[in-house]
């Protein structure tokens, strides 16, 4: 198993010095696993905990109880070196293409960061590698010198994918990667993910509210509601023959 989560719990507490807020249970005893080469979709509505789950696996949000292992190692217990290797093997692509790049740096500089950190490419060769990556995601290599605001939403999302691929990750975590895009642009980006998966052979976890996007992209799917997994299964089976009421409601709303 590439990723295995056991009995994950996370409560977000609000409150300050003298007040302890009631807290929101964002992850309620969540267990799942993701095999190498698998494409796993996570669907749910806002507040279902799907984004928290993804951020937990990215080690951006600490969890309260349970465990998450990546390639057998507990991510909360990683030392400096292990964490650095983990960071290079797991990469996110976020929802909002407008703030996914630092507005002060050129797109090429942001993509080059991955190569610099990995140190597997000679400094002199980095611009060439960046150009090759941009070409891979279907962008004009000349865009390396462009600033983020000069790109369209779809172009920025492609560039964000290029940045994630620079470190040759084993797992790509996608958080609503196309929900801010137009339908025709979404189709291009989803096709691109499929093409790249064939070429770069990464596993994939896709978090979205959009069930059809999951059925197009993923082999298996988890359905989340109020922090808990309500149903899981092979995508086609789950859509054709949903077991829980909630999944049935999702499926019927998606038509």
């Amino acid at each position: 198993m590439l990723v295995a989560a056991r009995n994950l719990r996370k409560t977000f507490r609000s409150g300050g010095l003298f007040r302890r807020g009631a807290g929101v249970l964002a992850l309620d005893d969540v267990s799942f696993s993701l095999a190498e080469g698998e494409s796993l979709g996570v669907v749910g509505e806002s507040g279902s905990g799907k984004s928290t789950l993804l951020r937990t696996i990215l080690r951006l949000t600490p969890y309260d109880a349970g465990s998450v292992t990546f390639d057998g190692a507990e991510i909360a217990a990683m030392d400096r070196g292990a964490l650095r290797r983990f960071r290079q093997r797991v990469q996110p692509v976020f929802q909002n293409p407008y703030s996914t790049f630092n507005p002060r740096f050129s797109v090429g500089a942001s993509i080059a960061l991955g190569f610099e950190l990995l140190g597997n490419v000679d400094k002199a060769d980095i611009p060439g590698e960046v150009a090759r990556l941009l070409d891979d995601v279907g962008l004009d290599p000349d865009l390396a010198s462009a600033l983020p605001h000069q790109l369209s939403g779809g172009q920025r999302q492609r560039a964000a994918i290029a940045r994630a691929l620079a470190v040759k990750p084993d797992l790509l975590l996608l958080d609503e990667p196309t929900s801010a895009l137009d339908v025709s642009v979404q189709a291009q980006v989803l096709n691109l993910f499929k093409d790249l998966q064939g070429r770069y052979a990464f596993s994939l976890m896709l978090v979205t509210h959009d069930l059809p996007v999951v059925t197009f992209m993923c082999d298996n799917v988890l359905v989340m509601k109020s922090g808990a997994i309500v149903e899981r299964g092979e995508t086609g089976t789950l859509v054709r023959d949903p077991e829980s009421d909630y999944t049935r409601k999702l499926v019927s709303s998606a038509v």
Binding site: G154, S184, A187, N191
Partner: peptide
């Protein structure tokens, strides 16, 4: 546009896309 939106079931291997941009 109709071919570009993924469907619940019976999706093709690749979605049909419109070349270029708006």
């Amino acid at each position: 546009l109709m071919g570009a939106a993924p469907r619940l079931l019976g999706n093709p291997e690749r979605l049909s896309t419109i070349p270029g941009r708006i």
